[in-house]
Amino acid sequence: MNEKRGLSFYLLTLFFIIFVLFLYGPTFTIGLLSFQGPSGGLTFPMNGTSLHWFRNLFEQQAVGDIWGSFRRSMALGLIVMVVTVVVSLMGGLAFRTHFKGSSLVFYLVIGSLIIPSILISLGVGILFNILDIDVHWSTSGLGSQLTWTLPFGLLIMFAIFNRFDQSFEEAARDLGASNWQTLRHIVIPIIGPSLIGVALFGFTLSYDEFARTLLTAGSYNTLPLEIYGMTTSVTTPVLYALGTLTTVFSFVVIAFFFILFRVMTRRQR
């Protein structure tokens, strides 16, 4: 495979570079534009540079309840993350034995993944309405987001267990370990780093979720809903400043999970 690189390699490399520019270019552009001077608009040219629009974010009256919605999104993201990890792990363990009716559960999970999000929003909204319960981000919002994060969590668990070497477990059992001991001391430490991946999906997908939370968050908005509301009313770069901050926050979260993953895999060696 060590022959000289052909023309196709260079063409494909060029294609890949253009694709990456396409993927990240817009994000970096608004990153740049969020440093617009106080009189600057939504497009280039830059009218000087300033932190004006970031400062604007911290003034309560300028825009809606950004920080309240950020706190709610954080809290919700963390709850979704914990539930997704625990429930996906249990689900993954369940699917290791082909129990009767497991394919039904499997189809339920796939259905949850491919159902148009607006149906979840509408259906949960109607259900709570009929049951006469007020929708709230921590109840109906939480449940709706789980219909999006759990399928990803479970699919990752499938991928993990399909590649799992069962001989460790058999050895533990041969040595007289109970089911719980095997799980606690053998299985979970081995798949631990992969659970970090499930946690990453759980948190970030919840933190950015919009369509399934739209009708189910109630009167207190999550951050994406707040940003969406701003797009119709705010026409200054403060929107970009908020976008930049959220994206930077997402990058920090992703980096945090990756570092955690690296640390945990390294400890295993």
Binding site: F201, P224, T231, S250
Partner: peptide, 11 residues
């Protein structure tokens, strides 16, 4: 793992 809405706004 980042926000779809922000990615739309950035166009």
């Amino acid at each position: 793992w980042t926000s779809n809405i922000i990615r739309m706004i950035s166009w």
